[in-house]
């Protein structure tokens, strides 16, 4: 059940363009151990800018 809720939460966040923060941390740990990852807030802001900055072709009709 908790897995289902977690997936639902991830889906809702992905619908508005915010990927999973923990996956990002895992990626940074595994591939860029030398770099400090963004904190949760910086990550959220970076994703917000990336989604709505206009480069993404906007939404559908």
């Amino acid at each position: 059940m908790s897995l289902f809720l977690q997936k639902l939460r991830q889906m809702a966040r992905m619908m508005v363009g915010v990927p999973d923060y923990d996956s990002y941390l895992r990626h940074m740990r595994e591939h860029h151990p030398g770099h400090a990852p963004m904190d949760r807030i910086a990550f959220f802001r970076e994703r917000q800018e990336a989604r709505y900055g206009g480069k993404n072709g906007g939404k559908c009709c």
Partner: peptide, 22 residues
């Protein structure tokens, strides 16, 4: 971890559907 993220199939279905349906 940002633009290129291997995403769960169901989660991505939601993302894609929300983007195409208007």
């Amino acid at each position: 971890g940002l633009d290129y993220v291997a995403t769960d199939r169901t989660v991505l279905f939601g993302h894609h559907f929300a983007a195409i349906a208007g």
